[in-house]
Design a protein around this nucleic acid. Structure first.
Lengths: 196, 196
DNA sequence: TGTACAAAAATGAATCATCATTCATAAATG
DNA sequence: CATTTATGAATGATGATTCATTTTTGTACA
């Protein structure tokens, strides 16, 4: 077995275990068992428990950024881009439930993670949104009164909270697609009644 | 000193300590020291460490619900109500930074908290939003295509993410008021350029 | 092929520090 | 002086990390 395989195997096991029990309640021996590896082996690939979390985050969110960039770059219209971002984000939650749970519940929580460790990758991800907003403003599509930094937070936050609900309640009363559409529509057009 | 005073003193100390170190990294002896009380005393008022967290949550969010209800009930127009909810929520973060930090980072994280413990109070708080949406739909102000359950998530999520940013970066580049206005405006009117 | 052997990788029991919790005792109260 | 409240040192469980030992791997040579 190649070295990187075992690294990967431990990471995947950790995602499962962290999702199930949470970072602090997860024991190294849980991860080891899940990865079918000895406890000590984990320390050949990671410095410590916390390092597993960080390293998982960097790897996985990196992949996600690549994927969504690819989709968005094929698009011309910033309005469409906003929709795509929403849909992609929510679909991700569905496809990678365990990972989503860790990213959402565990990483978020850790003051240490968000404060001390400057979270480059995460910022890179949500900055995709503000870039789209700026593009839309330049094209005269979005109001120039909007602060891209605020819209970025609000849009990501809206999607993120949808995800949280989705993760907490196994059976949400609406589809991913419907949710993504309502969020992007609301941001783009607003909630007011109006003539179509 | 009345019993309830000591309970209160411990709760307030716990808020500080949890905000500073996070729930899992906080030691009971930290809280005891902060509250100027012996370690053992804490167990006269709470069953265990986790109980402190839960009990703090119930008490504090209860107060918050009362406060925002009071403000909203004075208002007729659902559009105004949405604005008030946003402003109130963000102002709260500013006024009660430590509490906000705990509610946001710590409670959220805990799978245990959000999953096993049916989180009535929290649901009650965000349900204020869906109630407003329904009212606005009945009055013909908001589109009936909107699912109140989705808007509730999205709106709360947007505000919550703003708060997170505010908490993480001491000096955000915009005021609470401006942020609240942009979020509520965007939801109500949308992002598109249009004739005023 | 098969054997020898050094280097690399893996093992998991033992170590050791860290707290949450308890409880025998002391102080405060009325 | 009895009852309530508070103390904080001692207990005991837990679990991350280490490291002496074993296993596997890759290479060289017969």
């Amino acid at each position: 077995m190649r070295i990187s395989d075992k690294h990967q195997k431990i990471t995947q096991a950790a995602i499962k275990v962290f999702a199930r029990k949470g970072f602090f309640n997860a024991r190294i021996s849980d991860i080891a068992k899940e990865a079918k590896v000895a406890d000590g082996t984990i320390y050949l690939y990671f410095n410590n428990k916390y390092d597993i979390l960080i390293s998982m985050f960097e790897d996985e969110i990196g992949k996600i950024i690549l994927q969504v960039r690819l989709l968005i770059d094929q698009e011309e219209d910033p309005r469409k881009m906003m929709e795509i971002f929403a849909l992609n984000h929510l679909q991700l939650i569905e496809e990678k439930r365990n990972l989503a749970e860790v990213l959402q519940m565990e990483l978020r929580q850790s003051n240490k993670f968000m404060k001390e460790y400057r979270n480059k990758k995460f910022i890179e991800y949500i900055d995709i949104i503000s870039t789209i907003v700026r593009k839309g403003q330049k094209m005269g599509l979005f109001s120039t009164k909007l602060l891209p930094g605020i819209i970025k937070c609000a849009y990501f936050g809206a999607l993120d909270e949808m995800s949280r609900q989705w993760l907490l309640t196994r059976k949400p009363p609406y589809s991913i697609k419907e949710a993504a559409r309502q969020v992007s529509d609301t941001f783009l057009h607003g909630m007011m009644t109006r003539p179509m």
